[in-house]
């Protein structure tokens, strides 16, 4: 009945070809243990929705090196030269979306909203092919909501119900990603008894969270290192 899974167990909830919503900004708030689990699996043809694809061989960059990905949807891929090269070689499809539009599209996906009109990117290359509408004299473009098959998020502390709190800016995309996946798996640093987290401090209520996996990583001297 509990939501706690071992790292070896969560991969069975993901299928070949799934669209994964992954939290994180750079390496911060990135579910590194879950990513390692996918890297070690036989999964393939995955689509990733995440702000970026980590760095070469780090974070989501590992999945690229392991040839797990066919498509990435996000706002900033330039920091991973492997992603740039894979795109140049035609091995990785990339859909570029402004960062705020990405966050709002996922928020809408989790909130039962089909899409939204935004002024971001109006008149730019990233608006090409998108419906434009003038509302109260201002130009907007239509962006569709984003949903996923599985959300992989990283929080700081969970209770056994799956309520989550985050570590400072490690929050970033995680709370919205937690709302928009059919199955939501949270990697956490620490698990506490129910009732320990104050209702007023909980950022992601447990209704959104299906499974919890304890992180294998700790922070040390400015980097994330494996603790086991």
């Amino acid at each position: 009945m509990g939501k706690l899974l071992k790292q070896s167990e969560f991969v069975k909830f993901i299928k070949d070809g799934d669209k994964l919503l992954v939290g994180g900004f750079g390496m911060s708030g990135t579910p590194l243990t879950l990513i390692d689990g996918i890297a070690a699996s036989s999964l393939k043809n995955l689509t990733i929705v995440s702000n970026n694809l980590g760095e070469p061989g780090k974070g989501l960059g590992i999945l690229l090196q392991e040839n797990k990905l066919i498509k990435a949807i996000g706002s900033y891929f330039t920091t991973n030269r492997d992603a740039v090269q894979a795109w140049v070689d035609g091995e990785l499809e990339i859909e570029l979306i402004p960062q705020g539009t990405l966050a709002e599209a996922v928020r809408c996906g989790g909130a039962g909203i089909g899409g939204f009109y935004t002024k971001t990117a109006v008149g730019t290359k990233l608006a090409e092919g998108k419906e434009e509408k003038v509302i109260d004299g201002e130009r907007f473009i239509l962006e569709k909501a984003i949903k996923g098959d599985v959300s992989l998020i990283k929080a700081h502390i969970a209770d056994h119900l799956g309520n989550l709190v985050y570590d400072h800016t490690g929050r970033n995309f995680n709370p919205v990603m937690a709302t928009a996946g059919t199955i939501v798996i949270a990697e956490v640093d620490e698990i506490v008894e129910n009732g320990v987290l104050l209702p007023s401090e909980i950022v992601t209520p447990h209704v959104y969270v299906d499974y919890i996996v304890k992180s294998n990583y700790v922070k040390k001297a400015g980097v994330f290192v494996e603790s086991v």
Binding site: Y76, F77, L96, P98, Q99, G100, K119, T120
Partner: peptide, 12 residues
């Protein structure tokens, strides 16, 4: 392959 928050800041 990178836009980040640039367009959101310009728009808003």
């Amino acid at each position: 392959l990178g836009v980040g928050g640039a367009m959101d800041l310009v728009a808003g």
